[in-house]
């Protein structure tokens, strides 16, 4: 037996799941989604939850819908489902670029988008995607449902604004306009490893100049975030190598303290440059 003893709960409805979580959260009860982070942590006994609330059989939790210009992702939607076909237009293209960088296929068949957000790893591809696109995250508890902007949800290294008794019931990603260009670049030491650095960019070219840029960087700081300076450096400019270079430098300038600042700077500029080039 690898994990320490726990009580196991298998709710069938969201109401039941929320009620059980309310009862067991004060006893270090945890939600079990894909289990691709929690179960290894339990095997190593880094986590010893007293209760597991397995949400895999909750009706409707595997729903993936496009509604009101948003891609709505239920808490049991697996990484593998979020490929190019998951959303129309540039958002689908972007998901198709990002998803293969998460772990390996047999982990992507179980791990979930919402579980990645709840876990808030600094090098999570989906956390980067969520902040880059201003995702909305819905949390439900006995007190009701609240919608949290991604940037306010991800607080820092493996820390979110989710209360222990709150169930993440949906994430919503806005669709991108048809003229949006998308680019993603990641550097990891081995295939499937967490990223050392990753950059996600999207922008449009309107009237020959860059419009509506979003440039987000992850892996180097305690959480992924949009780089406002980099976006300001490129907006309204002709999308050429010079403009890309100033955006990359601005992103690196804005980095907080890191272990090896020179290396972090090289990683940041390289990732932003390559993501911008990929989108061009």
């Amino acid at each position: 037996m690898k994990p320490a003893a726990f009580e196991y709960h298998m709710p069938r409805t969201v109401e039941e799941a929320v009620a059980i979580l309310a009862r067991v959260a004060p006893l270090d009860g945890r939600v079990l989604a894909g289990g691709q982070t929690l179960v290894p942590a339990m095997a190593l006994r880094l986590a010893r939850p007293s209760h597991l609330v397995d949400i895999n059989r909750v009706a409707g939790f595997d729903r993936l819908d496009v509604r009101d210009g948003m891609l709505e992702i239920g808490p049991c939607v697996r990484h593998a489902a979020l490929d190019r076909s998951a959303a129309p237009g540039p958002l689908g293209r972007l998901l198709g670029l990002v998803q293969p960088h998460i772990a390996h296929h047999p982990i992507r068949t179980r791990g979930t988008f919402c579980g990645s957000l709840a876990n808030a790893d600094a090098a999570s591809e989906w956390c980067l995607t969520a902040v880059a696109l201003d995702a909305r995250i819905e949390a439900r508890s006995g007190r009701g449902t609240r919608s949290i902007p991604a940037d306010a949800f991800l607080l820092g290294y493996m820390t979110t604004s989710l209360e222990p008794d709150e169930l993440l019931v949906r994430a919503r990603l806005p669709l991108l306009p048809d003229d949006a260009r998308v680019g993603f670049y990641e550097y990891a030491r081995r295939a499937g490893d967490f990223a050392q650095v990753m950059a996600l960019v999207t922008y449009a070219v309107r009237g020959g100049v860059v419009a509506a840029p979003r440039i987000a960087l992850g892996g180097l700081e305690s959480r992924p975030r949009r780089m406002a300076g980099a976006e300001a450096a490129i907006v309204g400019r002709v999308p050429d190598a010079l403009a890309f270079r100033s955006a990359a430098d601005a992103a690196a300038d804005a980095l907080g303290p890191t272990e090896d600042p020179d290396y972090a700077r090289t990683l940041a500029t390289t990732a932003v440059l390559r993501a911008l080039a990929a989108a061009a």
Binding site: K2, Y8, Q36, V39, P40, D54, I107, T109
Partner: peptide
């Protein structure tokens, strides 16, 4: 036994998954 090596991979309803990261229940 923590998802990294792939030796325990099985097919669950036809799809490859890690048997070490699933509970029998």
């Amino acid at each position: 036994e923590h998802g990294v090596c792939g030796a325990c991979t099985i097919l669950l309803d036809g799809r490859a998954v890690r048997a070490c990261l699933l509970l029998a229940v």
